[in-house]
Design a protein around this nucleic acid. Structure first.
Lengths: 127, 127
DNA sequence: TTACGTGTATTATATAATGTAGTACACCTA
DNA sequence: TAGGTGTACTACATTATATAATACACGTAA
């Protein structure tokens, strides 16, 4: 389910966050469905429970999952979109970086537009 | 010229790399033009020469600038595109993350496509 | 040649992010 | 009550980032 890549330099908790979001958007994890407990997932990926807990807290803050104390953690029934101007600006900056890096890697703008269409097909519209 | 944002959590050397690439693409820094020396820039932005040197080494590795020992550092006359399959895959993954994050921030795919067009107008085609 | 400005390399130190380890607590369900 | 939840806390180790202080090799110009 969640796969941690040790060669990937990004922190374990960020890899969890990224993959969990994708699983929810793709509909592999359905609204209301239970996700692995902190201790379960930590033993599955061989990481510390604290690391998983950190990821879950961020995912809850972003409205992807919600926790019911003593019961477990679940995919939110209805995603609460949190409009956040700071987040929007951050995403724009990240996008600019990608476009610039793409230039020096020999990638054209049209290629990037097509990539987005592919991503949309892969994860879009499932919820 | 180069502006370091202390509130920005990304490392100083990465901020230098990002901004230097943009300055070159926008044509504000022209091919063959001299860029500030390591010591000059480090005093301009109040950082350590080592930090600037680290940024310059990466910029040279990516073909943005080139150094002439004892003379200085200059914007490359002709960008050498370095096709790099790893880099391409990395950029695709970054782009996917942005699209996913955008969903939970209430941003539509079309908005992202339009952002790219804006970025293209801002930096595209100057070199 | 000499003086100066280049980029580069090295070592040491400090701080913060990341991850591990162990323990304890509050809450819910069976 | 017993066991499974998420959560909180402290302590420690490792790594990335940045600073600090030198030193070196090279090119240019006085």
């Amino acid at each position: 389910m969640i796969q941690i890549d040790p060669r990937n330099s990004s922190p374990i908790y960020e890899q969890i966050i990224k993959q969990m979001k994708e699983l929810c958007l793709k509909g592999i994890l359905k609204p209301g469905e239970k996700v692995p407990s902190v201790r379960e997932l930590s033993s599955m990926i061989v990481a510390n429970p604290n690391t998983v807990s950190k990821a879950y807290k961020e995912l809850e803050r972003e409205g992807v999952i919600e926790t019911l104390r003593g019961r477990g953690t679940f995919v939110t029934e209805t995603v609460q979109i949190k409009m956040n101007e700071e987040k929007v600006e951050m995403l724009k900056e990240q996008l600019k970086s990608i476009v610039v890096d793409a230039y020096y890697a020999g990638i054209k703008i049209d290629d990037i537009q097509n990539w987005i269409k592919e991503i949309e097909k892969e994860i879009g519209g499932k919820r």
